[in-house]
């Protein structure tokens, strides 16, 4: 299968007076049509900034300093290098929403309180389809709300975002993102602010929609449970870098990077024994201003190789089985060459 989006060695830095924050420092992955890529990591790993970089929505003082984001348009034409397009240019605006849509963690702040939600969905429809009449746009909006499982869609269209419950608001948000049937949907922690039962509803909805629209989803979350359930491919991020990447089954059952392994073991599982101690990762995530030298994980890694891991940064290298890992334990040859 041909990828629809390729991100290669993406680096997005924030230049602040206190210092440079390397929010994304070497992220590489591919997105395939109809598939879900899970982008997982803890706070400060740069997963959200990666998403914003793809849409070219990084605000100052942030800037993409290196790497490429190749987008392959639907008509099979030339691949577009998104990092080279002006972020406010016509092409980029066309891509945002129509080709790549984004849904956020907190649906409350993504809506204006001054317009009804229907108004906002219709606006999204008509931005990319200017010829559409008011009535046709309204019919499309009602249709979208029905598809996203909003009961009483016709009435809900005239409500304001604060009149809706969290779950409904997220459904409306998804409806808005789907207004132009995007080819890629970026979902940034779409269920983190929701309760588990509501989360289950939204995840099921996303799966259904993916099946019927055939879109690719980039699912950003810190929840390994959500990843296991939704993703086909997984990219694990730590301090701005993709440290491991591979099919979901391999990531969960044959993880190679010490961080992935430790992370998986430290998750409290609903299947675990009551009142048992959990294995932990020692220390804490470093402050973005004081990134460790060498492999970003080495100060917390129990398998670090002295003199190597604290000196050199391992590259993300593809293994024979298609999994890729950035760790010297798995490509010692590279060390010798250094």
């Amino acid at each position: 299968m041909e990828p629809i989006l390729t991100v290669d060695n993406l680096k997005t830095y924030f230049f602040q007076s206190e210092g440079t924050v390397k929010a994304v420092d070497g992220a590489s992955f591919e997105v395939y049509p109809g598939q879900t890529l899970g982008l997982v990591g803890e706070s400060g790993c740069g997963k959200s900034i990666t998403a914003r970089s793809i849409l070219r929505l990084v605000d100052k003082p942030g800037r993409i300093v290196d790497g490429s984001i190749q987008y392959y348009p639907a008509n099979g034409g030339q691949a577009l290098e998104l990092t080279e397009l002006p972020s406010d240019g016509a092409t980029m605006r066309e891509i945002r929403g129509k080709d790549i849509a984004l849904i956020f963690q907190e649906p409350m702040t993504s809506f204006s309180a001054h317009y009804s939600v229907g108004n906002q969905i219709m606006e999204a429809i008509r931005i990319h389809d200017r010829g559409l009449s008011q009535q046709a746009a309204r019919a499309r909006a009602v249709d979208l709300l029905r598809k996203t499982g909003v009961p009483m869609a016709e009435q809900r269209l005239d409500m304001y975002s604060f009149q809706l419950s969290g779950g409904l608001r997220q459904r409306v948000m998804i409806a808005m993102a789907l207004a132009c049937t995007p080819r890629i949907l970026i979902a940034d922690e779409p269920t983190t602010a929701l309760d588990v039962t509501t989360q289950a509803q939204i995840l099921a909805l996303l799966k259904d929609l993916q099946r019927s629209f055939g879109m690719a989803i980039i699912l950003i979350t810190h929840d390994m449970g959500v990843i296991a359930e939704m993703a086909d491919e997984v990219a694990v991020m730590y301090l701005g870098r993709v440290v491991e990447r591979g099919p979901v089954d391999q990531i969960f059952h044959a993880p190679r990077h010490p961080y992935t392994r430790a992370l998986l073991r430290s998750i409290p599982s609903i299947d675990g024994e009551p009142r048992t101690k959990l294995p932990t990762i020692r220390g804490s995530i470093p402050h973005p201003y004081s990134r460790p030298q060498g492999c970003p994980f080495h100060p917390r890694c129990l398998e670090r190789i002295a003199g190597v891991c604290d000196q050199h940064e391992p590259a993300l290298a593809r293994m024979a089985d298609g999994q890729a890992v950035a760790c010297f334990l798995h490509h010692r040859e590279e060390i010798r060459q250094n």
């Binding site: 409904l168 039962t197 289950a200 099921a204 359930e229 089954d249 969960f252 059952h253």
Partner: peptide, 25 residues
């Protein structure tokens, strides 16, 4: 029962039969 079934399990090989609750709290 519904609450338990809704918790995502960090194991891609297990696919729980979700009980999807209708409506809101």
């Amino acid at each position: 029962e519904a609450l338990l079934s809704a918790v995502p399990i960090p194991n891609p090989r297990v696919h729980s039969q979700r009980i999807l609750l209708e409506g809101d709290v």
